[in-house]
Write a protein that binds this DNA or RNA. Structure first.
Length: 565
RNA sequence: UGGGGCGUCGCCAAGCGGUAAGGCAGCGGACUUUGGAUCCGCUAUUCGGGGGUUCGAAUCCUCCCGCCCCAGCCA
């Protein structure tokens, strides 16, 4: 199912053209360069699929490179999770696991080279002064008074910076470009800052750290990257990326920018995701409501469904927000084919079948997957008292409600036709306590000899055999399609969906579900796809996460009805 | 505002001078022991707007409009 021929896109056009022109001796080398300061999310998946996919299609390689030049936010656990997620998605960087922090020495040497060429200088301006000197969008900047220091002095100062002779923030190494350049990034950008922070890999070996602009392009060059693919916001960095490489006289990869993924009703920025985790709006990076790879995994998404989604989304340069419905479609499509069916009653309502012999139990044969006969059948116990979904009974049914109601007959899936004869209510609350029905013994298995067919088929679980379990229902984390769209003075978190999680602690599961293992996936008939929670499920108390609902035309009808009120 | 990008159906997205692919969503209908799945059909005379070039333009030129990115010693 992944044999789809790759969709064309502008990045491929560029590569095709380069190949035609004989660039890079026909080599294609890409890289995925995460910063280990957070967990990967579905936006990263798009980049991973693009970079690894391109490499595979063009017979090249894709490196994994941790862009770890900022010791203040990076951690080993993030490295661990990133590797786990990429592997889980189905990609392999083989032995090409690189770290910008392994290039620190080389990057430093490149910097000295630039100094020697008179193209970089040590600047004593403070952070605030640097900002002032930068000018604005419309006003050119002012040159730093330290800009014309002699080369030897710069060299000496830079070495002393590295040696730790100056306090944090007191000096920077800057490229000498053009303080009046219309592109602010070209106004003598900073290459190194002094920061005595413990680096998770280099420890305290360094007290000066390269900035992104200085580290990224040169790292790409060191690795022989041919096509350095990044997101749109780096478009303005490209002139600088090229300037460094050209002036250093080293291999120059081609930077190509594409539009990052945005998902409706979700937030896809590490800063915001971190805030949700840190301030406990969710249970962690892997909360099933999170758009992180680990969250999606725990929710029940499969690697192939995510890859498929990334394929469907395409690669272009226009900012866009992809509908969550597409992601849901991708997982439904896959699970429909592979998930075994089961019956589970989420919100139980007891049904007593008056004319069914007390104490009798029948094992009825149920199909495991109508989409795949090879998956066979199983036996499910049926008895006098069963549970059905509360939503499947209505005392006063509206027009298009086909399910059970007083006097009406419905089919119990793979079992019998039953007719509701009485509704028992709790005398105190008035709530429906249980309903009484009669069954037609001639309809065993769900077919009637006289050919009549009820309008509805409902699922059920035998009360005596039911396995109690917990079911967690999820809705989008945000109520707005674009969570960033807020009222004056409000914060994006004001769009958090208070109903994004609903926990059902008294669900009744079909017996064999007791044996389900963490990660196992099922379709609960008529409800949706569910997977056993990776963390909180146990044999004596299974916990299921709803991955996605089934398409539900009845829900659409009721929803439309409400909207018209 | 200076610079850099982008604007094709509700949401994505092909298209690269020869007369608007596809997917998702939606809407009909068929079928159905999941109101599921499947199947069939419908949905842009029009490509942000105006003007121009051309036999012919979403594709070229031009002006205008709208949106995004850049003033971190973050990436």
């Amino acid at each position: 199912m992944n044999a789809l021929k790759p969709k064309g896109n502008f990045v491929r056009d560029i590569i095709d053209e380069d190949l035609r022109a004989g660039k890079n001796q026909g080599r294609v080398q890409t890289r995925f360069p995460p910063e280990p300061n957070g967990y990967l999310h579905i936006g990263h998946a798009k980049s991973i699929c693009l970079n690894f996919g391109l490499a595979a299609d063009y017979n090249g390689n894709c490196n994994l490179r941790f862009d770890d030049t900022n010791p203040e936010t990076e951690e080993v656990d993030y490295v661990r999770s990133i590797k786990e997620d990429i592997r889980w998605l189905g990609f392999d960087w083989e032995e090409r696991e690189f770290y910008a922090s392994d290039y620190f020495e080389k990057l430093y040497a490149f910097a000295e080279d630039l100094v020697r060429k008179g193209l970089a200088y040590v600047c004593d301006l403070s952070a605030e002064e640097v900002t002032e000197h930068r000018g604005t969008l419309t006003k050119p900047g002012k040159e730093s008074p330290y800009r014309n220091r002699p080369i030897e002095e710069n060299l000496g100062l830079f070495r002393r910076m590295r040696a730790g002779e100056f306090p944090d923030g007191s000096k920077t190494l800057r490229a000498k470009i053009d303080m009046a350049h219309p592109n602010l990034l070209m106004r003598d950008p900073i290459l190194y800052r002094i920061r005595r922070a413990h680096h998770y890999r280099r420890g305290d070996a360094w007290c000066i750290y390269a900035t992104y602009d200085w580290a990224h392009g040169q790292s790409d060059s060191i690795e022989g990257i041919t096509h350095s693919i990044c997101t749109l916001e780096f478009e303005v960095h490209r002139p600088l990326y090229d300037w460094f490489l050209v002036n250093l006289g080293i291999h120059r990869p081609q930077q190509i920018e594409f539009a990052r993924l945005n998902l409706s009703h979700a937030v896809l920025s590490k800063r915001k995701l971190l805030e949700l985790v840190r301030d406990k709006y969710v249970s962690g990076w892997d909360d099933p409501r999170m758009p992180t790879i680990s969250g999606l995994r725990r929710r029940g998404f499969t690697p192939s469904s995510i890859r498929r989604f990334c394929d469907e989304v395409g690669v272009a340069k226009a900012n866009s927000i992809v509908d969550m419905a597409l992601l849901e479609h991708c997982i439904r499509e896959e699970l429909n084919k592979i998930a075994p069916r089961a019956m589970a009653v989420l919100r139980p309502l007891k049904v007593v079948i008056l004319n069914y012999p007390e104490g009798q139990v029948e094992d009825l044969e149920c199909v495991n997957n109508p989409e795949d006969a090879a998956m066979g059948t199983r036996k499910v116990p049926f008895s006098r008292e069963i549970y059905i979904e509360r939503d499947d009974f209505l005392e006063n049914p509206p027009k298009k409600f086909f399910r059970l109601s007083p006097g009406r007959e419905v089919r119990l899936r793979y079992a019998y036709f039953i007719t509701c004869v009485e509704v028992k209510k709790d005398s105190a609350t008035g709530e429906i306590a249980e309903i009484h029905c009669t069954y037609d013994p001639a309809t065993r298995g769900g077919d009637s000899p006289d050919g009549r067919s009820p309008k509805a088929t409902v699922h059920w679980v035998s009360a005596a055999h039911a396995v109690p379990g917990e079911v967690r229902l999820y809705d989008t984390l945000f109520t707005k399609r674009d969570p960033g769209e807020v009222e004056e003075g409000a914060d994006w978190k004001s769009n958090l969906n208070p109903k994004s999680l609903e926990v059902l602690r008294d669900s009744k599961l079909e017996p064999f579900l007791k044996k389900a293992e963490p990660g196992d996936q099922f379709q609960f008939e008529r409800l949706g796809y569910f997977s056993v929670d990776l963390k909180n499920s146990s044999a004596d108390r299974p916990v299921f996460n709803r991955t996605v609902t089934l398409r539900d035309t009845w829900a659409r009808i009721t929803k439309a009805g409400k909207e018209n009120e």
